[in-house]
């Protein structure tokens, strides 16, 4: 019962937050006009005569798709973070720390420079790059007996991230400094600035589908988080479920990175907040994490586009909020997390 109330409060707050976010922007549009624009567009009735074409475009073609993308990416990054912490039974990992994001970045940078003519090349290359990076981190940390020490995995992820970042550096070095380099650089900082209805294509909808599937099978994460030996002896085919979840994570992160660049800290921090609210059972944790992740990303993006007349890359905001929180968490739980 208590959980249902918590979900209800979260969903209502998220709806208010979405409405609030549509009102934010450099070009001021009165809230009454915004409501009227949304109402007319949803019910397909004629727009009020006092609403200009310009205002319609801002609300419907700029702010709306952007907010939808922010919600999808925020929820996607956070759920992937919770899932990877469960699979690796390690509260210190996230797709970002495992190297998925830097692998996806390298793939996307390569695609921008060499394959820009092929359709969806950024998505596909980001996905492949992410998969290679997480496999490399996994193999680096794995001991001969198959176990993966908690800190080794964090360290291996850091090493692999560093390697992939330097490779991305080489790609940037050979990129065309007039067109490709600015594209790579701005995109890597993470931003929702260029989102339009065209960016929200069919591939983007893989993100919510993956999120829903991860939530549906969340029970498997509970059992996986007991460790390989115990999960196996309970009757689980651990290889199969690990591959399924790593596929969900890599494809989700790959698409997020391809659409909006690397945005860190969401996948690491949000699952901890979720556990503090609804407990560790992944069946209730994952939906909660999706809601908090979406809300957190929306707040960060509002700050990114509302704080100055220009636009701060949102990855900077999430890091500024995420890092102090994580330091606090580590200090508080130090003993149990590191060992």
């Amino acid at each position: 019962m208590k959980k249902t109330v918590t979900y209800f409060i979260m969903i209502v707050s998220l709806i208010f937050l979405v409405y609030f976010s549509i009102n934010i922007g450099n070009y001021h549009i009165p809230p009454s006009k915004i409501l009227s624009i949304i109402f007319s567009s949803v019910t397909k009735t004629p727009f009020d005569s006092n609403i200009s074409e310009y205002e319609k475009i801002i609300v419907l073609n700029l702010r709306m798709p952007r907010i939808i993308m922010v919600l999808l990416v925020g929820a996607g990054l956070a759920v992937c973070g919770a899932a990877s912490q469960g699979i690796f039974r390690n509260p210190l990992v996230s797709p970002f720390i495992l190297g998925v994001s830097s692998g996806a970045s390298l793939g996307a940078a390569l695609a921008i420079v060499f394959l820009s003519k092929l359709p969806h090349s950024i998505d596909i290359c980001a996905g492949i790059g992410g998969a290679i990076a997480v496999t490399a981190a996994f193999l680096t940390a794995r001991k001969p007996d198959g176990s993966i020490p908690r800190l080794s995995l964090v360290l291996a992820g850091t090493i692999i991230s560093s390697l992939f970042s330097s490779l991305t550096g080489i790609v940037k070095y050979i990129a065309d400094s007039e067109t490709q380099l600015p594209a790579i650089t701005f995109w890597m900082m993470g931003s929702f600035g260029s989102v339009s209805w065209e960016t929200l294509d069919i591939i983007t909808w893989i993100i919510p589908i993956n999120i829903i599937l991860m939530i549906i099978f969340a029970w498997q994460l509970n059992v996986l988080s007991l460790g390989d030996k115990e999960a196996t002896l309970l009757g689980m085919n651990i290889k199969r479920w690990k591959i399924i979840y790593i596929y969900f994570i890599v494809s989700t992160i790959g698409i997020c990175v391809a659409r909006t660049g690397t945005i860190g800290w969401v996948g690491l921090v949000i699952p901890h907040i979720g556990r503090a609210i609804v407990g560790p059972n992944h069946r209730s944790l994952l939906p909660m994490v999706a809601l908090i992740g979406a809300a957190f990303m929306l707040i960060s993006d509002n700050i990114a586009r509302g704080l100055t007349t220009g636009e701060i890359p949102v990855g900077i905001i999430t890091a500024l909020i995420g890092t102090p929180f994580f330091i606090y968490y580590l200090r508080k739980k130090e003993a149990s997390v590191w060992n």
Binding site: G86, R89, N90, P91, N222, S225, L226, G227, E230, R275, G279, P280, N281
Partner: peptide, 8 residues
């Protein structure tokens, strides 16, 4: 058993 997450 080393509990990783505090399941009930």
């Amino acid at each position: 058993h080393e509990p990783m997450f505090p399941f009930s």
